[in-house]
């Protein structure tokens, strides 16, 4: 997740004209091949090839075991027509959408923005402590994050969340059985809040303080200033964040798999888990690959939409 942050900032360095002292000559080719060649070959084999091979696999009936494992056949778009008519797959896409919308686009964005705006106030004391505490969920490994929440969501009346709701007089609930989607949305908000906060803090730093002060002097309330001055100015970074969080949320696997393994009754089989189950547990490589390609296309379409939206008024 963190690694995605670096990409946009570095884009600008690439657009810069080549630094002086760089020489273009025939003699550079051997040394470039020597230095960059291994990276280029490895990236091709372990990143590009899987993507291309995935497209081919999605057009075959490849299996991990059985007859089709030895002799896979080209079957055209059969896997795609199967998937698009499959209630399980469509339900899985729907769950991915629900998970993405409520956890990333609403939850992380709103809470991350609240945290970033509050921490940008001059009157807040203890910013170091607040910032460090909010970063904790992001820096621990996925498996530890899941483990902590397994205890919070524990079914017994002494589970942390049940104790909390018990304060308000509610009966104890088996959160991961009765409200599995709500539970994983909550966990993913917790996990991704800090990334949103970091992105928005960086964006807010670029908003000129005089503009905010001028609006305040003109009698605008804090909420009005945020809505009409700050938000339009950070529109670009907000959509960039939405793009990055969409990619990483669609790629969430371990966090959900650890807690629910897609259950109960397939209620939390988000697309990543659907692909894993189909391809590697039911050994239907072809169908799993077709599902991967459909997911990839959806992410790309969303990406284009965000980029368009970000540019409208900037």
């Amino acid at each position: 997740m963190t690694s995605l942050v670096d990409a946009p900032a570095s884009v600008q360095t690439a657009i810069r004209p080549p630094a002086p002292g760089r020489r273009r000559s025939r003699r550079t080719w051997p040394i470039v091949a020597l230095l960059l060649g291994p990276s280029a070959v490895l990236i091709t084999v372990f990143i590009v090839l899987p993507a291309v091979y995935g497209v081919w696999l999605s057009l075959t009936n490849t299996q991990l075991t059985g007859f089709a494992a030895r002799n896979p056949q080209f079957i055209g778009l059969d896997n795609y027509t199967y998937l698009l008519a499959s209630a399980d797959f469509l339900a899985s896409l729907g769950q991915t959408g629900t998970f993405l919308f409520w956890s990333a686009i609403i939850g992380q964005t709103v809470l991350g923005m609240v945290a970033a705006v509050l921490l940008s106030r001059t009157w807040v004391r203890g910013k170091g402590f607040f910032g460090a505490a909010l970063l904790m969920p992001m820096v621990v490994p996925e498996v530890v994050a899941s483990l902590t929440w397994a205890s919070v969501l524990a079914t017994s009346p002494e589970g942390t969340l049940n104790r909390l709701t018990g304060l308000f007089g509610a009966d104890s609930t088996a959160w991961l059985q009765d409200f599995p989607m709500l539970a994983i949305i909550l966990v993913n908000i917790w996990r991704g809040l800090a990334f949103a906060m970091i992105m928005f803090q960086a964006a807010l730093e670029d908003v000129p303080a005089e503009l905010i002060e001028a609006s305040r002097v003109d009698g605008a309330s804090a909420v009005q200033v945020f809505r009409y001055v700050t938000l339009p100015l950070i529109r670009g970074p907000v959509f960039l964040y939405l793009l990055l969080t969409t990619i990483s949320t669609v790629g969430v696997f371990g966090l959900v798999y650890f807690l629910t393994r897609g259950g109960p009754g397939g209620q939390t089989t988000i697309a990543a888990i659907y692909i894993y189950e189909r391809a590697l547990q039911f050994s239907q490589i072809g169908i799993g690959s077709a599902a991967s390609i459909i997911l990839l296309v959806i992410v790309l379409v969303l990406g284009v939409v965000y980029v368009r939206l970000a540019k409208v008024q900037v």
Binding site: S3, A272, I275, L296
Partner: peptide, 11 residues
């Protein structure tokens, strides 16, 4: 970086 990891893991 746009490609989510679960989308290429099978291949």
């Amino acid at each position: 970086r746009v490609v989510p990891a679960p989308a290429t893991i099978v291949a």
